[in-house]
Amino acid sequence: MTARRHEEDDGLTLPDRQPLAGRTCLVTGASRGIGRHIASELGRYGATVVVNYRSSEAAAHAVADRITEAEGEGLGYPIRADVTDLDEVAAMRDAVADALGPIDVLVANAGVTRDRRFAEMSAEEWHRTIDVCLHGTFNCTKAFYDDIERADHGRLVTISSVVGKQGNVGQANYAAAKSGLFGFTRSIALELAPSGSTANCVAPGFTDTEMVQTIPEDVRAEIRSNVPLGRFADPDEIAGLVRYLAGEESGYITGEVIDVNGGTDL
């Protein structure tokens, strides 16, 4: 990363104000929740951000507009694709390539929950969760793998969950999908390593997004009581880590599963 001199006489340097300027980042499921915060954070640091969505068109365009209209060099580019459909993902890749060229960073964030105790869980609830959370990550990584491998400091960041490590009642499908991302990311990290590109996985704890806000307050209070820091994560705390992993400074970190869970594993 280039740097500018802070003062002539002390030799201190500060990073450029927009360290992600010139980098194109694609965030799946970026119209809401953690994905929206990740997209906004990358744009705030100067990236061109492809804001992927499936059904929330207005929300995705609002995210992209905020990135473009903010001070700095960030540019938002909304695009629809269902990550479970490989043909749609391929079409998204082609559209992004035509408009912006190859990407440098893929943040595989898209996910859904279909919560139900296993004894009552339907095959549709199982497969839908696996399709979005795990197969969707495969589809997007497959489509953009060459971009990441060839990029100067290419990055894959997958978004998992503390549930993938600990399990959770009523979330056997979600836990299976999210734990699958651990092995997937580590394997891709090994395959990308010769090119100098990296792959890492972020595993947030319960985060204060729309999804968590729908949980009954008594249940949320019980969850908080099991977190040593005594609170849910702020989505910007997740986004800040992803922004770091997307940048040049993280170049010697690869194949890691990084927990952001308030000390839940302690």
Rank of each mutant, 00 (worst) to 15 (best):
R4H: 13
H6G: 06
G11I: 05
L14I: 12
P15C: 08
D16V: 11
D16A: 05
D16Y: 10
T24G: 04
G29I: 06
S31T: 10
I34T: 07
H37V: 02
G46Q: 14
G46K: 12
G46V: 10
A47W: 07
V49N: 11
N52G: 10
Y53S: 03
Y53T: 02
R54S: 13
S56M: 09
E57T: 08
A58P: 06
A59P: 00
A62V: 06
I67D: 00
A70V: 02
E71F: 02
E71N: 01
Y77T: 03
D85N: 07
A95F: 00
V96R: 02
I103A: 06
L106V: 13
N109R: 04
A110Q: 04
G111H: 04
V112P: 01
V112C: 09
R114N: 13
R114T: 14
D115V: 10
E120R: 15
E120H: 11
A123D: 12
W126S: 11
H127S: 15
I130E: 08
D131A: 13
D146S: 14
D146A: 13
I148R: 07
E149T: 13
R155V: 14
L156P: 07
V157L: 03
I159H: 00
S160N: 03
G164Q: 04
G164M: 00
K165T: 12
Q166P: 02
V169K: 08
A177P: 03
L181K: 04
L181D: 03
T185C: 12
I188L: 15
I188F: 15
A189S: 13
A189Q: 08
L190A: 10
T198V: 11
T198H: 09
A203L: 14
A203V: 12
T207H: 11
V212M: 10
I215S: 06
V219Y: 03
R224W: 05
A239W: 03
G240F: 09
V242S: 04
R243K: 14
A246L: 13
S250H: 07
Y252M: 08
I253P: 00
G255E: 01
V257S: 09
I258P: 03
D259W: 08
N261L: 05
